[in-house]
Design a protein around this nucleic acid. Sequence first.
DNA 1: CCCATATCGTTCGTGTACGTACGATGACAC
DNA 2: GTGTCATCGTACGTACACGAACGATATGGG
Lengths: 157, 157
Amino acid sequence: MRSNVAKKQLESKTASSAASRPYRIEDQIGYLLRRAHQRASAIFQTGIGDPNITPTQYSSLAKLDEYTELSQNLLGRLVGMDKATMQGVVRRLKERGLVDSRPDPGDARRTLLSLTTEGQRLVNRLLVNGPAVSRETLKPLNPQEQKQLLDLLSRII
Amino acid sequence: MRSNVAKKQLESKTASSAASRPYRIEDQIGYLLRRAHQRASAIFQTGIGDPNITPTQYSSLAKLDEYTELSQNLLGRLVGMDKATMQGVVRRLKERGLVDSRPDPGDARRTLLSLTTEGQRLVNRLLVNGPAVSRETLKPLNPQEQKQLLDLLSRII
DNA sequence: CCCATATCGTTCGTGTACGTACGATGACAC
DNA sequence: GTGTCATCGTACGTACACGAACGATATGGG
């Protein structure tokens, strides 16, 4: 087994040929995204107004509020979720009576999803808290930096 | 139930008092972080060199490579993982023979973790691919923007 | 019309991540 | 010593994300 000194030298040789910086996990984009997402989820959970609603459920409800009626597959594409993941999210929302479904009369493969009255009431309440959650998450940055971060993130998606 | 027009007007009233922008899920920091993290994970999975290693496992292995020996709890703090989550990650790494553990002689509560020879060989191989994964993830941005994004992300963690 | 192809929804398995709760151990005050 | 108190490892349940596979349904080309 190599010593730590030997390790450091090898890392310098392999990783810092161009950028002149050693490769550190804490500086990698994937690591930072995971940590930032963790923190954002925690803030969401405490601030959105209903501890039983998750970020993905919130996105789904908000999209159904916007479009009134959507197939499960299309909803998944709109909120960036795998169809298998979407299936679980929709199942839980239906179990809680927040979302209703009916067969698409024009295409027997599709199921059309919509908000129930209770789901509509809930999403109206949650959407009021949405801006505060985003504000809290971005609080360490000034307005210009916040705008920059949103722009840079949307460009690497 | 309100009409779509009425909905739009209400949203404008509640959300755009200061920022003058309507509240759209796609523009929220939490949503963008989730999507960006999804994409980064996908790139990691295809580029790190071993499809069975996940980002969290990679972070853990890299930290064990850096520190040689760590308690499970401390390792969790270093890579930003809950201790319960850490427990599952370590269990899988031990099952695959990549990590070994021994009781801490000075503190009977602790278990000290270290890389096995096979774990050391694997992490050496994966670390070579790390920079390429990060490069690919950040590819849509120019070098200055990449630096900005890393800086902004680290400041909201 | 019929067959190849694509889409849609579902199910199964794996892995990460969190919250909660529990027992065991060690550190410290008294 | 005895009684907190924090820390550590573990166990259980829930949610999310993905890949793989499947049946049912549409759709377009021959």
